[in-house]
Computed example of a mutant assay.
Amino acid sequence: MATTIRVNENVKKQLKIKAAETGKSQYELANKYILEGLKNDKTPCDTMTIEEIEALLKHDNPKGNKLLNEIDGTIDIDEITDSVKLKKDSYRI
């Protein structure tokens, strides 16, 4: 599966230089460095399966999806709020 990843311009330049120095493609080096970073990452996190990730990406409406609500920080309440009015009111003294 091919995908596009945006990287910092400085990282892109360094990758290009490293590719020229080693004779390897930027693609090969990027994959190598990403895999090494993933292996060495000691940050504790909950690992989701590919199926769980795909389900999240396909889901358009987080309402009713507990995991999406936790990720985006929404809270179920019965009260309807008007974010524009709340923002305008916050400017009033």
Rank of each mutant, 00 (worst) to 15 (best):
Ser90Thr: 00
Leu67Arg: 14
Asp46Tyr: 10
Ala55Val: 01
Gly64Gln: 00
Thr47Lys: 15
Asn61Cys: 04
Ile75Met: 09
Asp41Leu: 08
Ile93Thr: 14
Leu15Cys: 01
Leu29Val: 01
Val84Lys: 10
Lys16Gln: 12
Asp41Thr: 02
Ala19Met: 05
Leu38Thr: 01
Asn69Lys: 12
Ile93Lys: 13
Ile53Asp: 00
Leu38Phe: 14
Tyr91His: 02
Lys85Thr: 06
Glu70Asp: 15
Glu51Leu: 09
Asn69Ile: 07
Ser83Asn: 11
Glu52Cys: 06
Leu67Glu: 09
Asn61His: 06
Glu51Phe: 10
Asn61Phe: 11
Glu21Asp: 11
Gly23Lys: 04
Ala20Ser: 14
Glu52Thr: 11
Asp76Val: 15
Ile17Glu: 13
Lys88Trp: 04
Leu68His: 04
Leu56Gly: 15
Thr43Trp: 02
Ala55Met: 02
Glu52Pro: 01
Ala55Asn: 09
Leu86Lys: 06
Lys18Arg: 10
Ser25Asn: 01
Arg6Gly: 13
His59Pro: 00
Ile34Leu: 15
Thr43Val: 03
Leu67Ile: 12
Thr81Ser: 07
Ile53Gln: 09
Asn8Gly: 09
Asp78Tyr: 10
Glu79Asn: 04
Lys66Met: 05
Lys16Pro: 00
Ile53Asn: 08
Lys58Arg: 15
Leu86Glu: 04
Glu70Met: 13
Leu67Phe: 08
Asn65Met: 06
Glu52Phe: 02
Asn8Gln: 13
Asn65Tyr: 04
